[in-house]
């Protein structure tokens, strides 16, 4: 039945092949502009070998760089957001959610669960900037609060890895209240002598910085991550002048005494493991 056998070679239309070569093999560093060979870049955990700029990771990539293989057991996967304010700006919140859900295959901007880091069992929360800028609405607030409560009751260390533009405007005041809710849960965790390590990645700003993310017993920031309360654009517009170079970067935060350490992506898992060794 040779007639039906799959051909050995398939042809790719020329236009597609061209763009794949241009975009597929090389990546341009967003900071120094260097062209990086994609495979090297991926092997380097998406860090520019020239200037050490840390590209943003997807949630899945973050999980694989921090947790032991296949150790994640997700919790509360059935919680999804709802447009309770019937919020419509240039797009409706429903539409924005749909787009974000299709893009990320997540219900909302966070996953929570348990996992291990070098064998240490922990409760974990990771925010995903790809889902509406990692913004915190009711689902993010609720899932993180449950994770915090689980860390308390199971007496497990808590690690939250943040990347977020802040509160989710489309949930109005309720998103603001998630700051109070998560910070209250962390305050409770504090009274139970449970360890909380807050990891800040690019970018962490607004209501997330002004709540749980700043309340870690230990606060770690990834190299060159943008960390701050007000966004740089808002500050520039308010003070009407250009911001100094390096302003609100992880190194700036370290210099001003606001975080414990700046850690590169490659070292993050080891650093967490070492801390867990010492404190768990």
């Amino acid at each position: 039945m040779a007639w039906f056998r799959k051909p050995k070679y398939t042809t790719i239309p020329v236009t597609q092949r061209k763009s794949e070569i241009a975009e597929g093999l090389w990546v341009k560093c967003k900071d120094c502009g260097e062209m990086i060979y994609k495979k090297d870049w991926e092997d380097n955990l998406k860090v520019c070998p020239e200037c050490n700029y840390h590209f943003r990771l997807s949630l899945q990539e973050r999980i694989t760089t921090v947790l032991d293989n296949d150790s994640l057991q997700e919790d509360d996967t059935d919680i999804s957001p709802t447009d309770f304010l019937d919020f419509t700006d240039s797009k409706s919140y429903k539409e924005r959610l749909k787009i974000a859900q299709d893009k990320t295959e997540l219900n909302d901007a966070v996953i929570t669960g348990t996992g291990t880091i070098d064998g240490h069992k922990i409760v974990l929360g990771i925010l995903d900037f790809n889902f509406m800028g990692g913004s915190m609405g009711s689902v993010v607030g609720e899932k993180l609060t449950r994770a915090i409560e689980k860390a308390i009751s199971a007496k497990l260390p808590l690690i939250i890895i943040s990347s977020s533009g802040g509160a989710r405007m489309q949930e109005g005041i309720m998103s603001l209240m998630q700051m109070a809710k998560t910070a209250s849960a962390i305050a409770r965790l504090d009274t139970s002598d449970t360890l909380f390590i807050s990891v800040l990645t690019d970018p962490t700003t607004g209501g997330v910085t002004a709540s749980f993310a700043s309340l870690g017993d230990i606060i770690i920031s990834e190299t060159k991550a943008l960390i701050g309360f007000a966004g740089p654009r808002v500050i520039e517009q308010t003070i009407n002048q250009q911001l100094p170079k390096g302003f609100q970067r992880a190194e700036f935060m370290l210099e001003h005494g606001l975080i414990d350490m700046v850690v590169s992506r490659k070292e993050l898992k080891n650093t967490l493991a070492q801390l867990l060794d010492l404190l768990d």
């Binding site: 993310a213 308010t238 100094p244």
Partner: peptide
């Protein structure tokens, strides 16, 4: 909260949290 350079240098997010 005031969005300014000094406010960020002194930890506006931390102060609120």
């Amino acid at each position: 909260a005031y969005p300014g350079i000094g406010a960020e240098e002194r930890g506006q997010g931390d102060a609120i949290a």
